[in-house]
Design a protein around this nucleic acid. Sequence first.
RNA 1: GCGGGUAUCGCCAAGUGGUUAAGGCCUCGGAUUGUGGUUCCGAUAUUCGUGGGUUCGACUCCCACUACCCGCCCCA
Length: 407
Amino acid sequence: MNIKAPKGTKDILPNEMANWHFIEKTAEETFEKANFKEIRTPIFEDTNLFERGVGDTTDIVNKEMYSFEKSERSLTLRPENTAGVVRAYLEHNLYRESPPSKFWYFGPMFRYERPQAGRQRQFHQIGVEMFGIQDASADAEVIMLAVEFLKRLGLNDLTVEINSLGCSVCRKEYKEQLKKAISPFLNQLCEDCQSRFEKNPLRILDCKNENCNKLFEEYNLKSKISGIKLCDECSSHYEKLKLYLNALNIKYVENTFLVRGLDYYTKTVFEIKSNNLGSQNAVCGGGRYDGLVETLGGVHTPAVGWAMGVERLNALIPLIETKKIDYFVVSDNQLEAVKLTEKLRNKGFSAEFDYTSRKFAKQLEKAAKIAYKAIILGEDEINNGYLTVKDLQTSEQTKISFDKLIN
RNA sequence: GCGGGUAUCGCCAAGUGGUUAAGGCCUCGGAUUGUGGUUCCGAUAUUCGUGGGUUCGACUCCCACUACCCGCCCCA
């Protein structure tokens, strides 16, 4: 067979499922505890939703969308899920419950990109979205939740980075001042930065080019940026967030260079990075998006959320061993073996029998690989109404009456 | 879209112009006709990503293509 999984997609094989279930279960427990409710939205949406929601200057919309036409309608495999959740929130009037509305989701996302370590074309995200609260306590709530989730997954060596991009008013001012600070050495910056200067100057700050970073140092860009003032409301929001994080004992690094590639973010943005991944080291990214609900046709609704890359999380979690089954029935009488297996399953045990009635040595060999215990059901057992149960870890073997095991 | 790397059994691999393409793991069978995890023995690639070319001869040299991996952009 020469058909392979498409570039950038991966099969999740049975031996990896324990890890995925662990992540999913931990997510559910963590988020439900904080009264976030799960939501599942379609995997494809109207292309328009993403163009308007994610923003048409972003790379996601410009070059990474899987779009297709059906009945003269343009649809797109979702590249992220915030826009979809907002759409559902509006479509079903979920804003009519008393705020906040809190959601979490888990599912596949699609972006047409060149795959590399930590990046696939189909990948999975776990995310939370919280609507209706303007106060920085909401920002703190979702960051706290992210940190708690990661902690429960047993992950450490992670760094929380935060920044504020300001609101629509002060961000404009911020951009202007940033451009002013950069313009003296603009012509020495890399090609990417040159094009970013007009398109989205904020992203210049995130450039990984060594020479650019040297220039930033040389011209003292960092201190110039931190000198740029947000408006009163935005800066007090940011201060308040830090106050909350400190009170919660959440360690964070302020990174004035932190910007995000999606257009909808306002005020708070944050990322959680791992020190144990390749160059795609962001495990979680998010922020506040106070304008998005309005952009998509709702009334002004403050909102904040984040998304995590499940494959990236999984890369940090050691392989969890697949659980063995409780019983493997060893027998040369398949009819009796099936009957016993069925009874065991009805009792709530996981059980299998040998389909080939090979010699006992081979059956035991198989049993030891896949089960914790073997039940030997041979001629003697059948004739005398008992079972031999063998613990495959300790090799301990006991005779037990048929009725006792089943009842 | 740009740059670099790799392609030999299900997996990990040695081979590097000359008869039958090492080895290990896994799987299956036997030693052990009712007892596994140790040990021993045996089986499993007419074939080296695909298509051309060079050569008496190519897995080994050349060309093209494809796939995958890594990095940039960007993002989870």
